[in-house]
Design a protein around this nucleic acid. Structure first.
Length: 667
RNA sequence: GCCGCCUUAGCUCAGUCGGUAGAGCGAAUCACUCGUAAUGAUUAGGUCGUCAGUUCGAUUCUGACAGGCGGCUCCA
């Protein structure tokens, strides 16, 4: 029997090995039961892969990112088998792994209800227990079309993939590459121990060796999803699940979800009396209560001050305008469906503005501009209204009326790169001031296949995109492409911030706009040094995007436990007994004169209860005073983590709070 | 906008197989004045999301609408 040479890579170690021809990948890693697949070159393979001469074979552990994807993909297959077992008429869509889990789409007569998920889970457990082997089988388009004649969606995938090669399987539908990517067409059979084929699915793989290797899974929810992600297509029923390398890992994941729910800004907003969404006003239209108003005002004051320091000029513009303005800007018709319907005022249609740029352009155009004025930076907290679809409104993070910390920098084309860099640095600095340290950038470009959604020439788009890309790359931050995500008037870079529990939120956007200033639109000009009239470039930027969204993100980031400078109540004074009220009222008065937000709890609750209340309200400083403190001219601090600091002289106590607020530190 | 689920006191939630409802927390009042996460008692508070329909009778069944939740599509 002939011999082959392979390189085995496992646990960071490389070994050259000699094996007999026909050796399978699993034989290299038989000693490690955590290995679920192999990476040969840059391709992931099943453990049943037959080694070739010269292959470099690396083990893929179940708890690695690739290993988890394989585990979840296999779990999706098991789920689909269970569903077709329970509902034989269910037709298969696609079923890829996703972040933290997997899903599978089904065309079924009636949508799944929660009780169905329990039934499916039970059937899945049975399949897992059976230890069915995942067996890979190469097929041809013709054979697959015949074998899958009852699976219309799979047939559609095969047809779409046909001829165009594997490279763009992902463009067929998100997740479709797991079915038909990778060049040759393959089917995976789930084979019982007695050799009987229990179930089969069109799939690229790879998969776990057997269903028994799924250590822990849970079905999470069902929901509808459009076939191939297009709202013109039929809705399929999607079931989401999660699967992990161990019961413990699954528990941890479920715990993280609970943690996120505990931090939910909608829940905390109610509990901390920050804001609400009165039905009487309308969906997606929040009101800020006094305590939420403090946070909003503090952050706005700071952001306004920082803009002015960075060379912006604060302006003010109305919420509505006559409709023709939005034809000039291009919002109608390019952004028309995002705008509220027109209001008829004495026969003239008015619109609530969805963006501030048209108004700022009119300020620019109010008189002749010189190159000496550029960059000209106009900024405001502009209230905008967007007619969001009813299903997308979500707490403060997706609303129908909000304030943008919106600015427009008018620059010469030569100044544009430096201005974009300036704006990006400014954004990142602001985030850090608010305790967000972890970001990445997303570059949204034009979708060339939909020219009717974008204005301007190809050359201008290419140039603008290149300018943004260069600045992004210079920043050294991670850059994620977002094809097709550009605004209708130009490409944009957005800053995505990660919060305290790792979720990401789109915050800033910086957009390069050569369209609105053009002669066909606003006809903006400046007089250049040589006396000629030139067209400026405008750069849109919103640092927090939406004040409302940012407050929602902050609430979740801090889990409601704000640093003192943002805390609605900075000091909660708690008397031990009624006879200490006046002592604390006096100290509170002195604190207030220094701008500190302090309240004295003079209710007739017991002091333990007062501490509990202050704790639940997440007040940073609890300031307690009883006989000992009064006698010593001191107070006792208790912090949110239970830390105590007793007998602090009054002067020092006031200074300590003042200092914590001024430095914007967390306590 | 689409699919599914949901809407009972300020909040969290029971409950009524169709005969107009309860708890805990919170609130108010009274007593207690207490050293680091819940003192006790009393009282008030709901046309059961809105509007129609079925019914002798609807909070309960049906429909429409509004609002919410989870997704899809979209997005700051």
């Amino acid at each position: 029997m002939s011999e082959i040479k392979v390189v085995r890579v496992h646990a960071g170690e490389r070994q050259e090995r000699t094996a007999t021809a026909g050796t399978k990948a699993w034989e290299l890693f038989a000693d490690d039961t955590d290995v679920v697949a192999a990476r040969v070159g840059d391709q992931l393979k099943d453990l049943s892969y037959v080694l070739g001469d010269g292959d470099e074979v690396e083990s893929v552990a179940i708890d690695s990112p690739d290993g988890r994807d394989i585990l979840r993909h296999s779990a999706a297959h098991v789920m689909a088998q269970a569903v077709q077992q329970l509902w034989p008429d269910a037709r298969l869509g696609i079923g890829p792994p996703v972040e933290n889990g997997f899903y599978y789409d089904f065309d079924v007569a009636t949508p799944f209800v929660p009780e169905d998920l329990a039934k499916i889970e039970t059937a899945m457990r049975k399949i897992i227990k059976e230890g069915q082997r995942f067996e890979r089988r190469v097929t041809t388009d013709a054979d697959a079309l015949d074998e899958l004649k009852d699976e219309p969606y799979k047939i559609e995938l095969i047809g779409l993939k046909g001829g165009s090669g594997a490279g763009d399987a992902e463009s067929v539908a998100e997740g479709a590459s797991v079915e038909v990517g990778g060049g040759e067409l393959t089917i995976y059979d789930n084979v019982r121990r007695n050799g009987e084929v229990a179930w089969s699915d069109l799939c690229r793989g790879p998969h776990l060796p057997t269903t028994k290797r799924i250590p822990a899974f849970k079905l999470m929810r069902s929901a509808a999803a459009y076939w191939r992600g297009d709202e013109k297509n039929k809705q399929l029923q999607r079931i989401y699940g999660t699967a992990w390398e161990s019961k413990e890992a699954l528990e941890e994941h479920l715990h993280r979800i609970e943690e996120a729910e505990r931090r939910d800004h909608r829940k905390l907003g109610r509990e901390l009396d920050l804001f609400s969404f009165p039905d009487e006003i309308g969906s997606g239209l929040p009101v800020f209560h006094p305590r939420g108003g403090v946070i909003k005002r503090e952050m706005e004051d700071y952001v306004r001050q920082r803009h002015i320091e960075e060379g912006f000029e604060y302006v003010g513009t109305p919420h509505i305008a006559k409709e023709p303005l939005f034809y000039t800007s291009g919002h109608l018709p390019y952004y028309g469906e995002g705008m509220f319907p027109a209001l008829d005022v004495d026969g003239m249609d008015y619109r609530l503005k969805a963006m501030n740029c048209p108004m700022h352009n009119l300020i620019y155009r109010s008189r002749q501009r010189s190159y000496r004025e550029l960059p000209l930076r106009l900024f405001e907290f502009g209230s905008v209204y967007r007619h969001e679809k009813s299903g997308v409104v979500h707490g403060l993070t997706r609303v129908r009326g909000f304030a943008q910390d919106d600015s427009h920098s008018y620059v010469t084309p030569e100044q544009a790169p430096a201005e974009i860099k300036h704006l990006l640095d400014f954004c990142l600095g602001l985030f850090r001031d608010f305790g967000l340290e972890d970001f990445y950038l997303e570059l949204s470009t034009r979708d060339d296949s939909k020219p009717d959604k974008f204005i301007g020439s190809d050359e201008d788009w290419a140039m603008a995109t290149e300018v943004l890309r260069e600045v992004c790359e210079q920043s050294g931050l991670e850059l994620v492409p977002d094809p097709g995500g550009a605004a209708y008037y130009g490409p944009k870079v957005s800053v995505q911030a990660r919060d305290a529990i790792g979720r990401t939120w789109q915050m800033s956007t910086i957009q390069y706009d050569f369209n609105q200033p053009s002669a066909e639109r606003f006809g903006l000009e400046y007089v250049a040094a040589d006396g000629t009239r030139q067209q400026p470039v405008m750069i849109h930027s919103a640092k927090f995007g939406s004040i409302e969204r940012f407050i929602g993100v902050l609430v979740e980031h801090y889990a409601g436990a704000f640093p003192p400078w943002l805390a609605p109540v900075q000091v909660q004074a708690i008397p031990i007994a009624e006879r200490h009220h006046d002592y604390l009222f006096d100290i509170a008065k002195r604190m207030r004169s220094q701008g500190i937000r302090v309240e004295v709890d003079d209710s007739d609750d017991r002091m333990q209860k007062k501490i509990r209340n202050a704790q639940l309200q997440k007040v940073p400083f609890m300031m307690i005073a009883g006989d000992d403190d009064v006698e010593a001219g001191a107070v006792s601090f208790r912090y949110r983590d239970g830390r105590q600091d007793n007998g602090v002289p009054v002067e020092e106590a006031i200074e300590r709070v003042r200092q914590a607020v001024a430095s914007r530190e967390q306590v």
